[in-house]
Design a protein around this nucleic acid. Structure first.
Lengths: 155, 155
DNA sequence: TCATTTATGACAACTGGTTGTCAATTGACG
DNA sequence: CGTCAATTGACAACCAGTTGTCATAAATGA
């Protein structure tokens, strides 16, 4: 872990862990007064981005988490009146989920706040820096979707 | 959220969320056979990196999480024999923590596995790309340590 | 068509974080 | 000194994710 690239990679990983924590924390603060949390906001975002009703497993795939974790948030969002179940003509058990008017309003408000917040945040970076950062993280993500290499095991 | 930099920033944030999940998952797999988890490994790393005994709040600060969260892992690591409490001459209640021989061995093994793993992972990136990515994430982290700007609030 | 595998929702247990509270220690200040 | 605020550990409640199991619905293939 002392060669330069490995050291850089390790530093990036630590930053990812900390950024994850901070982003969730700031996100919770940002949308807290709208009755949202970071997790619920992400669910609304997945539906809004898709622009069409989605099933729970589809939302889970879009968010990159398990269907069970997503289902918890979906059930809560229904209870809170931000989402609505509707019948899925092509599947008896697996409902489609859509935003209610309240849900749409909350998401639009959250998006507005996020826009203001991100405006400040991005100013110091050049576009090319941001693109590079995104490319590195994206390629890391691709490589982590594959299993561990054979030699990196105890066996 | 449609201007180019804001869009890039939003993409980076989503990648941070997903990478966090994947890194923890792969980390758990990597060190699982050593009786470690990602969280316990990070604690051992904080102590190993410091090279001297640390108190629970010091370890928490090094890891960027709360002292209560750290304390949970510390107590478990003591139970498992990887850490040892020792008396803190300058504080009656707040013990110092050190690695036991078992703990040192587990950490060295984990580091070896991590090295092999990271070797593959970093190959496709140029050093300058990694540096840029690290700089962007680091600067984002700095900016997130400050409170929300005034205008990004509902009031 | 029928059998088997896969997908799905509900539920439970667990992990690793968070916040909050309380009591005891520490440290700073009058 | 004595007092009072900050630090610390223990504990509890909670949040957001995980895995696993079970029953049922859907899809696949002989």
């Amino acid at each position: 872990m002392t060669r330069p690239k490995e050291k850089l990679l390790a530093d990036i990983m630590v930053l990812v862990f900390r950024l994850n924590g901070r982003l969730l924390e700031q996100g919770d603060r940002l949308v807290g007064e709208l009755g949202l949390t970071s997790a619920r906001w992400q669910v609304l975002g997945a539906l809004a981005l898709a622009g069409r009703p989605l099933t729970a497993p589809q939302i889970a795939a879009a968010m990159g988490i398990t269907r069970q974790g997503t289902q918890k948030q979906l059930n809560l969002l229904i209870d809170e009146g931000l989402l609505q179940r509707c019948h899925n003509p092509s599947h008896e058990r697996s409902s489609l989920y859509i935003l209610t008017d309240t849900g749409k309003h909350a998401f639009v408000e959250a998006d507005r706040l996020c826009d203001l917040w991100a405006g400040d945040l991005g100013q110091v970076f050049s576009e090319v820096m941001l693109i590079t950062a995104k490319d590195v993280l994206g390629e890391l993500m691709n490589r982590l979707d594959r299993p561990l290499p054979r030699h990196a095991q105890v066996g």
